[in-house]
Amino acid sequence: MTLVFEPNMVCSDCLRLLPDLNERLRERFGVHGPGSAEGLPCIGCGFNEQTPDMAQVVDCPHCAEELAFAQDDFPRQGVFLSCPGCGRSVRIPPTVWCPDCGLNFRGQGIDDLVREANARGR
Rank of each mutant, 00 (worst) to 15 (best):
E66M: 05
G44T: 09
R28C: 03
Q71E: 07
M1V: 06
N104M: 12
P94D: 11
N22Q: 10
P75D: 01
M9S: 03
P93L: 07
G78P: 12
P99N: 10
D73I: 08
V79Q: 15
A70L: 15
N118P: 06
E116V: 10
W97R: 13
V114N: 02
G107C: 04
N48L: 15
T51I: 11
G107D: 09
E38C: 00
C45W: 00
R91Q: 10
D59P: 00
P19F: 13
G78Q: 01
I43F: 13
L81M: 05
A55Q: 14
P19W: 13
C83L: 09
M54Y: 01
R24C: 07
E23Q: 13
R122M: 07
L113Q: 05
C98W: 06
C42D: 09
E38D: 10
E66R: 13
M54V: 03
C63G: 02
A70G: 10
R120M: 02
S12A: 05
S36D: 07
R106H: 00
L3F: 05
F5S: 05
C98F: 07
T2Q: 15
P19Y: 01
H32F: 15
G33Y: 05
F69K: 04
G107V: 01
F5I: 03
T51L: 11
T51K: 14
V57W: 06
G46N: 09
L67N: 10
D112M: 11
C42N: 08
R24I: 15
P61Q: 01
G107F: 06
E6H: 14
A119T: 03
R115W: 02
G87S: 03
A64T: 14
G121Y: 10
L21G: 07
F47I: 00
P52D: 00
Q108N: 12
E116D: 12
E23M: 13
V57C: 08
M1Q: 09
I43V: 08
M54S: 05
P61L: 03
A37G: 13
V4K: 11
Q50C: 06
S82C: 13
D111Y: 03
A117L: 12
L3W: 06
L40M: 09
L3A: 04
P7H: 04
A68D: 00
P99T: 04
F29N: 08
F74T: 08
C14D: 04
F29M: 11
G46A: 08
L17S: 12
G39I: 08
C86M: 00
A119E: 11
A117T: 07
V4F: 10
L40C: 02
C45D: 10
L40I: 02
P84L: 01
G39H: 12
